Simulated assay, not measured.
Amino acid sequence: MDADEAQARGVYAPMPTLSYGPSGRVGVAPGDVRGTVLIPERCDGYCLGLDGRDGPNLACEGCGQAVATRVDDCTLWQVVWLDPRAVRPVSVEGPARRVVSWEALRKEHPGMPPVEQPGWWSPVWTAAVAVALAHLLAVSGGERVAVPYGPVAEAFRRAIDILLPPGPPAREVVLAGPGLSVTVTDIALVPRHPQTDEVWPTGARAAVPLAADVWTYMAFHDDRRLFPAASGMPEDVCRDDPPPLWPWSPFRPDWKVFLSTLARLPEVRQPWLRAVYDQVSERRYQHPFS
């Protein structure tokens, strides 16, 4: 595929593979799919499962038509991609889906902790931060960016130190969104609505979207280490029982998600950002991704 054809598909940098499948596919959890069977001759995969390399590998149990592609291979997210050429949405009786307001977002999506047992970084966090990191580099213009202390710094500062030029910060990124009374004039790190995909509106010069569950945790969770108290504590004081989980390694964004996101941003055609893309592509297992 030449550069013009790739650009027409929304890709602005070289990628090892590019799907020729139809646009508008819908990804669902494998457990939510009913009435399908595997197509045996299309069940190849790279390692120990299915990766969809041979096209749709799920057929309708009733008529035998290929309807979806199941992905379930080593290092890949488990998903079923419904083929828009074979399936269509059908209205069902029942209440309409309630869209959570921005004001209720914190209550109904309280945030996902970044660390899982036994000290692994959550893959949701490594993927979400990788997406936001690509957007952050794109809006930085190649200038050094300062980030606030706390979870934002833990997730982004190491990558910024490595991928952006050294020197004093010329730009600043600040958390902004529902429930925060802060004025941001430069770069705002804002939530992306988990239902509508809408990005929190901001008057900042640039906005960097972040998955709502990760943004909410960064904005409102207190990760400071706590000390034992000699006497009783008020009920509203943050307690350390059970103690919080701590990671066994520095935070590492997902390099695959980072490259895939960056390749789809027109800004990657700028020489400095293309150099970052090529550097990570060639040395993907080095810092900050390893």
Rank of each mutant, 00 (worst) to 15 (best):
F258N: 00
R252T: 09
E103D: 14
D213Y: 03
E198L: 13
L76P: 02
A132I: 08
E143H: 12
L105N: 03
V268W: 00
S260F: 01
F251E: 02
G62P: 01
S231P: 03
R225C: 00
L163R: 09
I187F: 04
V184S: 02
W272V: 08
D4A: 15
L164K: 04
S19R: 10
I160H: 02
Q78R: 15
V276I: 15
R274F: 13
T69F: 01
P166K: 11
P114W: 04
S290F: 13
D54W: 07
E143T: 07
P110Y: 11
C60D: 05
G10A: 01
P178M: 06
L38E: 10
P166I: 10
S260M: 05
S249F: 08
G111C: 10
R34T: 14
V33L: 03
L245R: 14
R98D: 13
P253G: 05
R252G: 04
A230I: 08
F227Y: 09
P228T: 05
L105S: 05
R53L: 11
G177Y: 07
D83T: 01
R9L: 14
A176W: 04
G24L: 09
D241C: 08
Y46C: 12
P84Y: 02
G27K: 09
P56L: 02
F227Q: 09
V115Y: 01
V276M: 07
A170M: 12
P114D: 03
P114T: 05
F251P: 00
R274K: 12
A176L: 13
P194T: 09
A211Y: 05
G94V: 11
I162R: 13
G27I: 04
V173S: 00
S249V: 10
Y46W: 14
E116W: 11
